[in-house]
Every structure is written in structure tokens, then in C-alpha cells.
Design a binder for these strands. Structure first.
Length: 435
DNA sequence: TATCCACAGGAAATCAGGGTGT
DNA sequence: ACACCCTGATTTCCTGTGGATA
């Protein structure tokens, strides 16, 4: 047998492809399970579709459509419904073809970039550079561009995850500017459609903006298990070969996703992952076992991707917690410890600078919000007020991710000197009693 | 019961790195 | 070359605080 330099049997890629091609087929069209896919029918969203269609219809006659907001938890079909309606609207026989400018505020996350994005999607010739110009110049250019178009033109600005924008500093201003676009336009009209999964984000909204776009809401309720089942059945018809899904698969996916606030995206991901697992095992059918495995895998995938995508400093914070819990499993970790260990290990990696306690505090909050760690504020009386920090996910998973990060890989076995100081031992004895 | 620890966490300033037009 | 712009990450400065201890 072929051996590589590690003396392991070498992966036979030709054989793999051959097996793969001759193996059983599970998928017919796996793209249909992607989140970007717009299905032909959207089950259980009739009221929302009707509502949005009614609000936007006047655009076909050249009137200004009202601005409005869509609320609903993740995976309740907000984005899909908007895209669906916009597609239908575009298919109508009408002289006026409205623009639909879709902006995910999580990706296009700054005022400048939002304006530039709008400009660049409309303008064919001149593009606005990704940075460099003053905002008001771009705003004026945008006004000019919108007004220069011949005849009435209507522009829908869809701001997805608008809550993220509002929580940022310049967020309210840019929204205000956008709502005021109409006042400065003669030949064209704009309408803003905000999408949010947080109801309470309106609290941070400038009152002037609420009045112009917060009056009308469309609520997307969470799906229940039977509704999710309908969605999955529709989608599975397009996605999978006939008869590859065992009958319990769809109800199980629906039930699992129903527990997670009725998240349809989750349900579809589960289904896809289950299919992929079956395919990988060269199975002819997808069973409940695949779904169960898919659920665990999905969770892990998500966390791993999240951690891999974080800045190095944040990863080093995770590494600090990891090293402490690894070499002193019983140790009660507080914020200050993370600061100390981080200071120590960051010196081991070239080009990584020292952080402030304040900054580390922010990272701890971020990790806690992401569900990677738990951080409970607790007062230790004379020993101060701080956070007690623990991992919320398995150490194996953490170890797995961290060791895949080049710069961190080398320090996975580093035992922090910090842990060996007397101060630490003493402190831990006191803390254990207090908790 | 006053004290005091070790931070929490808000607000504003700063820095570096990507640009611009003149 | 120069003055100026935007952004993201971070620092600086700051006030607030729960509860064991003296």
C-alpha cells in the first residue's frame, strides 16, 4: 500500500471520486436548500404576502409606496417573503419597474457604505469608491442620480437586520437621511422596508424615524411544527431524489426546529445536513439517525465557523480560558485572570499587542453573547466584583478549533506561569468557598 | 455600618490604515 | 505633497457597585 511520509495509508483520491460517482444519489438539486433560494410557493405566509403586496402595489402606478417594518424571529421567512414579493412585482406588466435595493446591515454596516451600495447598484457607469469621500458628497451624488432618471422611478430600499444599524453610532442619522430622501427628490420616490428580528429595537430608534417608517408593521409569527413540515415537504420535493427520505425524517426535522423558536432556516439546514451525512456514508436513504447526527454537527459547525471568523485577539481570549481550564480544571476563572493569561500568551506570538482590561471585558461579553462562554457577574465582597467565567461548550470542540488556527496552534500546550504563582493558589481557595 | 476590592460598562478620544480630490 | 474623509479596533477616562470584612 502507498504510504506517505507519516507512514499513514495515503488517501486514494481517484478511488474516492469513482466511488462517489457510482454511489447512491440522494440529492436532485441541493441549491434549493440554500438560504438564498426563493421557492415558488411560501407556505403559511399568505397574510404577510398579501399585506406587502398591497403596500407595494402602488409603485406600479408610479405612486410613493409607504415605508414599513417587518418583525419576526430568525427563520420566520421575512427576507424570503420580501424577495418573493419583489420578484412577483417585477414580473408584472407595467411601465414602471421599481428598483429593489437589498442591504444587509450586518454586511453593509456603515453609513458611507450604505449610500455607496445604493449608488453603485443603480449607477451603471460611475461607481463610488469603497472609501475616501465625505458622506454628504455621496448623499448629493445619490440624489442627483435618482433624480436624473427619466420619468418616475421608484426605489425600494430593503434594510435587512436594521436593528444592528440602529445600535451603531451613526445609524440613526443615516436612517433619518434615507427617510428624508423623498423630500429632496422631484422625479423619483423611495420607500424603506426595514427587517428586524428584535421588536425592542424601536426603543433606540429616533422618534423622527419612527414616525416615518415605524407606523406600519408586518409581523411574522414563528412557525409551528406542522407548518415547518409543510415547508420541508415542499422543498424536499425539489431537493431530493424520490423516495430517499424515510418518512420520519421530515417530521423530526420540523419538530427539532420547532423547539428552536420555529426557525425554518434551521429546519432546512437540518434536512440538508442529514442528506449530506447519508450521502457521505454512501447510504441510499436518509434516516432519523442522520437527522440526529446532523443536529449535533450543525451546532458544532456553527460554533467552529464563528470562532474561526473572529479576530485573533478574541481567539486568544478563548485560548486563555482554555489554557486555564486545561491545566487547572477546578480553578474559578475571573476576568482579571483572563487579562493576566492573555498578557502572557500574547507575548509568545509576534505582532500581537497588549490589550487593556476594558477591551478584554468587551471580548468576554461578546463571547458570552455568542454562547461560547458563560460569564456571570458576581460580587466577592472584599475580593471585588467581577465575572465568573466558564465554557458553555465542550473542551474538545474548543481544542479542535484552536489547534486549527495557525498562530495559536503552537501554544496549545503552554502552561501559563500565572497559574503557578502563590497568589493564584491562595485566591482560588478563597473563591471556592465563596461560590 | 463604613469600607474597599476588582472590576463593570458608558462615553469620548485616539490611532492606523484604507482612501479621496486638488 | 497636502488636507481631509471613513472605519474598526482600541485606549483613556470615568462613575458605579454588591457584599465580605474590619
Amino acid at each position: 500500500m502507498l504510504k506517505n511520509h507519516n507512514n499513514n495509508p495515503q488517501f486514494n483520491i481517484d478511488k474516492f471520486y469513482k466511488n462517489y460517482l457510482s454511489g447512491p444519489r440522494i440529492f436532485k438539486n441541493r441549491d434549493a436548500l440554500e438560504s438564498s433560494y426563493i421557492p415558488r410557493e411560501l407556505p403559511h405566509r399568505d397574510t404577510q404576502i398579501k399585506n406587502i403586496a398591497e403596500k407595494t402595489a402602488c409603485a406600479l402606478l408610479g405612486d410613493t409606496p409607504p415605508s414599513f417594518l417587518c418583525y419576526g424571529m430568525t427563520g420566520t421567512g421575512k427576507t424570503a417573503t420580501i424577495r418573493y414579493v419583489s420578484q412577483k412585482l417585477a414580473q408584472q406588466n407595467s411601465k414602471i419597474k421599481p428598483w429593489w435595493i437589498y442591504i444587509n446591515c450586518n454586511v453593509v454596516s456603515t453609513p458611507y457604505r450604505i449610500l455607496a451600495h445604493i449608488y453603485n447598484t443603480i449607477s451603471r457607469k460611475e461607481k463610488i469608491p469603497p472609501t475616501g469621500l465625505p458622506k454628504d458628497i455621496i448623499f448629493k451624488k445619490l440624489l442627483g442620480l435618482l433624480d436624473s432618471r427619466v420619468g418616475n422611478s421608484i426605489c425600494f430600499l430593503v434594510l435587512d437586520e436594521i436593528d444592528i444599524l440602529v445600535d451603531k453610532k451613526g445609524g440613526n442619522e443615516i436612517l433619518y437621511d434615507l427617510t428624508r430622501l423623498n423630500e429632496n427628490l422631484d422625479n423619483s420616490k423611495t420607500s424603506i422596508i426595514g427587517i428586524s428580528n428584535k421588536l425592542k429595537f424601536r426603543e433606540n430608534l429616533d422618534p423622527r424615524i419612527i414616525s416615518s417608517l415605524g407606523e406600519e408593521h408586518i409581523v411574522f409569527p414563528s412557525y409551528d411544527a406542522s407548518e415547518l413540515r409543510d415547508i420541508l415537504i415542499e422543498r424536499a420535493k425539489i431537493t431530493f431524489q424520490d423516495g430517499v427520505l424515510k418518512e420520519e425524517v421530515i417530521p423530526l426535522c420540523a419538530a427539532l426546529a420547532a423547539k428552536e423558536n420555529g426557525d425554518a432556516r434551521k429546519a432546512l439546514q437540518l434536512l440538508r445536513k442529514a442528506g449530506e451525512l447519508a450521502e457521505r456514508d454512501q447510504n441510499k436513504i436518509v434516516t432519523a439517525k442522520h437527522v440526529e447526527k446532523a443536529q449535533g454537527d450543525l451546532e458544532n459547525d456553527h460554533i467552529m465557523e464563528y470562532i474561526k471568523g473572529m479576530p485573533l485577539q478574541a481567539q486568544l481570549i478563548i485560548a486563555s480560558i482554555y489554557l486555564i481550564s486545561r491545566f487547572s480544571p477546578d480553578y474559578v476563572i475571573i476576568s482579571g485572570d483572563i487579562y493576566d493569561v492573555h498578557s502572557e500568551i500574547r507575548g509568545l506570538i509576534p505582532g500581537v499587542r497588549q490589550l487593556t482590561k476594558r477591551r478584554i471585558s468587551d471580548y468576554i461579553n461578546e463571547l458570552s453573547l455568542a454562547g461560547i462562554i458563560s460569564a456571570e457577574v458576581k460580587s466577592m465582597g472584599h475580593y471585588g466584583r467581577t465575572k465568573i467565567i466558564k465554557f458553555d461548550i465542550g473542551m474538545e470542540l474548543i481544542e479542535n478549533v484552536l489547534s486549527k488556527i495557525d498562530k495559536i496552534h503552537g501554544i496549545m500546550n503552554y502552561k501559563p506561569v500565572f497559574l503557578q504563582t502563590d497568589k493564584v493558589k491562595l485566591k482560588n481557595n478563597i473563591f471556592k468557598k465563596l461560590i
